[in-house]
Design a protein around this nucleic acid. Structure first.
Lengths: 353, 353
DNA sequence: CTGAAAGCGCTTACAG
DNA sequence: CTGAAAGCGCTTACAG
């Protein structure tokens, strides 16, 4: 049995904690096949210049020993790791699933693996993660920023780490960034409500320090201003996306003499909670939400949304990253992807009262 | 300016494609600080036995050069990479988001990074990915299998790669596996429909070669048998989860003289399509689905589901992986996590007709 | 067609 | 407290 033979070949096998569980190396393969190290390297890498007979002997040794090339050593010598890092907010958020998958597909097409981690919306954790990835010498970094100061990446970028920011722009450094048209999308969504007769429209969004939240609020304001509609202070609420906070905000702007007849929600998590609040209400209130939701079309009424294409964001960013690595890229650029208004019913409800 | 100084220090800087973009190494730091290599290593790793003054000089050199330790070299020497791999079916599937995140959190607690990839339900791609991760010398592997033969991992496991299978068992090798109680969950879900008066109940599931699909079908059969109810052939449909296939299957079992009065769906993707089919129907049909869905409670009626805890699956698997790496683990084990029936309305509809 | 030597950037084991 | 030498498992550049 080859396994037994292999164990017997390696007397040190039973030490605990031995490196890589005592894997065979090219040196072991070379010894067993009776050839030089370089010849093994040639066979393993499919390089030309090995006689069929030699190749066969090497292959046999590889199989008998269960050899698998240590890419981590290879990488040290070659300089590129064929891996990229993705720092996002939360892998569990449905918005980031398609984005990650798209980045992964592009990486795969370029023969690279994807290391990813969640910042949990914490700038320190984002930095920690990004720098840990740099220490592993990923070739590039796709970052959905949690913080707003990325000067900590300057030495890394200068050292050659390709970097693209997605969903939110980089802070205080000049870098490639791929965004959705958050301002335009929100403005269109709110204009849609206005077109359906609403004037008292509320906005509930994420924390204002988050770029997307600020941009969407700006879009809301612009649409209201375009329509010549004054905005009451109580109609705008920015803060955490936890259900309690959002619920309170919604209930507040839905009551009193200035109560809104329509709500624009700033992201998927806010939308979900507001749908729950509206479902418990006796009167119909219009709703348009930023971000699409699975099953949104099956609710009564269907949820009208401003959809962004998460997969396209990821794909675009990753492709740009690899163009940086190819050296075919010039100055940093800001790419903005369009959003799409999807009418499903909730946004077409006329004002009540 | 330190940057300029650094560039000037390194005459080869302008070659294209130079390794790691010509990053400074410990050797560079040592030279600049006028100390030995080992002293730099001590400072970088916070080892004791360096005078404050020496330490300061080294730190200054580190900052001036923008040095960051190359963990990829470190790893080669130390033998452990502090990274684990996760092979799943599709990062974009909402079921795997929380699972990935849970694995990531456990990895993080152990100081490890997560490399993950999607098999796209293709056994060859699963193998390719898993072996690529082994070549990178990940310390361990969490695998949601697409294939049913994992003997290809035997040499890797023997070489010390910790391995845990999740969601579906390993094929033809003895390994740790963490599963949901697919059989029991499906049986309970179908029994729930039976308790509400149904006898003609359909089952629509994923491809039968997928373990979870087979187990859930088994649960369906068991519940029907427990109730002494014969199952017509037309009531069971297994196959791809693409909407067209599922729609056809649903429409078929919902028509004709033997038409079912209730449907049990085998996973989240099937459930979503069946909800759409039922919504277009004039008569009420009961539905219980395996896997929970966001917004399921907001539909009319709410969707009754057999929920599994994706995060718990991931967490349990990752914890077991690190126990293997600690060496505190004995024989491979099969862990089964309970499911939970969540009543929301669709599963409590009485039979019609 | 084949292989010995040097080196990637670190850590280990040892000596001063 | 400090550092020179050897080595992790590969690839590169070169010589035969």
């Amino acid at each position: 049995m080859p396994e037994t033979a292999r164990r017997a070949d390696r007397p040190g096998d039973h030490r605990p904690g031995n490196r890589y569980g005592n894997r065979p190396t090219m040196k072991d393969v070379a010894a067993r096949a009776g050839v030089g190290l370089k010849t093994v390297s040639r066979v393993v890498n499919g390089e030309p210049g090995v006689t069929p007979d030699t190749e066969r002997r090497v292959q046999e040794a590889i199989e008998a020993l269960g050899f698998r090339r240590n890419d981590s050593a290879r990488v040290l010598r070659k300089g590129r790791t064929a891996s990229i890092g993705l720092v996002l907010e939360d892998l569990a958020d449905p918005f980031y699933g398609p984005l990650s998958r798209a980045v992964e597909e592009v990486a795969r097409a370029h023969g690279a693996l994807l290391i990813n981690g969640s910042s949990a919306e914490d700038p320190d954790r984002e930095q920690e993660l990004a720098l840990a990835l740099c220490a592993r010498r990923v070739d590039g970094l796709v970052i959905i920023p949690a913080g707003d100061d990325h000067r900590y990446l300057e030495p890394e970028i200068r050292a050659g780490v390709a970097t693209v920011f997605v969903d939110r722009p980089a802070g205080r450094i000049d870098a490639d960034v791929v965004l959705s048209d958050n301002f335009g999308g929100a403005r269109d969504g709110v204009a849609h409500l206005i077109a359906h007769g609403h004037r008292r429209i509320g906005f509930i969004g994420d924390m204002p320090r988050i770029h997307t939240a600020a941009e969407r609020l700006r879009g809301y304001r612009a649409a209201m201003e375009d329509a010549g509609t004054a905005v009451a202070d109580g109609w705008m609420s920015l803060g955490g996306t936890d259900p309690e906070r959002v619920r309170r905000a919604a209930e507040e702007m839905l009551s009193g003499p200035d109560a809104v007849t329509a709500v624009f929600t700033g992201n998927n998590r806010v939308t979900v909670t507001v749908i729950r609040v509206l479902a418990a209400l006796s009167r119909p209130v219009a709703l348009v939400g930023f971000d699409d939701l699975e099953l949104a079309d099956l609710l009564q009424p269907g949820v009208t949304v401003v959809a962004q294409d998460a997969a396209a964001l990821g794909r675009t960013a990753a492709e740009r990253l690899f163009r940086q690595l190819d050296g075919t890229l010039l100055a940093p650029e800001r790419i903005e992807l369009p959003t799409r208004l999807v009418e499903r019913g909730s946004g077409e409800i006329p004002p009540s009262g």
